[in-house]
Design a protein around this nucleic acid. Sequence first.
RNA 1: GCGAUCGUGGUGAAGUGGUUAACACAGCGGGUUGUGGUCCCGUCAUGCGUGGGUUCGAACCCCAUCGGUCGCCCCA
Length: 423
Amino acid sequence: MNYQKPRGTQDILPSESKKWQYLENEIRKITNLYGFGEIRTPIFEHTEVFKRENDSSDVVNKEMYTFTMNKTSLTLRPEQTASVVRSYVENKLYGVSELPLKLFYIGPQFRHERPQKGRLRQFHQFGTEILGARNPFLDVECIALGYTLLQKLGLKSLKVLLNTLGDKESRETYRDALQKHFSPVIHEYCEDCKRRLDQNPLRILDCKVDKEHLYTKNAPQIEDYLNEESKNYFEQVKQGLETLNIPYEIDSRLVRGLDYYCDTVFEVVSTSEALGSQSTIFGGGRYEKLTEYYGGPETPAVGFGMGLERVLLALELENPSLITEEGIEAYVMCLSKDLQHKAFKIVQDLRAAGFRVQGDYFSRSLKAQFKSVDKTSAKFAIILGNKEDENQSVNIKEIATQNQDSVKYSEINNYMKLKLGGN
RNA sequence: GCGAUCGUGGUGAAGUGGUUAACACAGCGGGUUGUGGUCCCGUCAUGCGUGGGUUCGAACCCCAUCGGUCGCCCCA
């Protein structure tokens, strides 16, 4: 029997987890600046939380990790917006919170898809949700937060794609227009599109199969069906981005997968090679019917989800020197088995004083232990052998200068403090 | 769900039917008994993802299966 991790999962090993910690730190810093509080929801939920009835989306209900325990159907979260909104309603946050409520999350999500570059079965997302206010500045704030974060990390080849789906009224008018437009020729379209015609004709627009179809190319544009309110709203979003000097492109094909979106939708893609065909780094938009589904009051909201694996992929190519390995401060070498206890004590005393210290665990030769000094990039080698022990002292060698001092046991910590400062 | 391609030691890899699985790096030991990073020597895969099959004989051929990589679909 040999054990392998399940397909599409990964072990994040220390060299890699360092990058994760760095990224998560930056996320915590910026969300803190923007006034977002962290929400941690369960990794699994009742299946109904994700499998919404009356949802005409193509995707919900597919590719989920669902299992049954004691006749209860549970599902590993494939996204977190649903969980956050469920939590918002369940905890009646609309009543106790100062609105708008700004939340963020970081964590693993699960989708049963075929792995490829930038796509795993267990992957990680950072996301935000702003609940309880309909204001174009909040849409802009979302985009700005994500965009600024990526810029700060050193990503350059970013492109902001923007579109509006209009408010409910505009959407319905537009939807009717699309249905009228496509109906006569729908038999020329793919099976998915035939279904979309009734369920969600907007999605025909970004269908990959039929994107070259004449009727797709000259389909009615949403701009022409926006009512004054929606037009105005979108205008303010655009102006907001311009005020912040965030370049964007209008992409009228941008629809996003779920049909609970309304008004602003956006996607930030990387044009770098690093991401292969999965180029979206974060995407999201405004929604307002989701809270009602979970039994809460109608609540306008806006949010995005960001794929952290993709951020890391892009980072590797565009800013590989972001995280530097830091050496330890001292390596304690022990040259005699009889002295291991003393060496161990020295290690622990230095650690207690706040120094990063390692020791030898194999009773290896002097040569081998010096190699460890190199590999750990230790600033000092502390050498303890019988000769030194006779004088109740150790030799401390500064690697950079090759200088070596004899230091009494009782003075080791003071010596190191003097050399390394602080603590 | 579909397609392409790959899977040999800690790492990078050679080997594509015939006795002891090349080489390099790392590791460990040694080169005058305790001062390394260069150099030299020695040592390091009873096994070639896993399970079957073909064959006198398989890492090499066949089947299945699990995984990696990339693409399609999709991307909540």
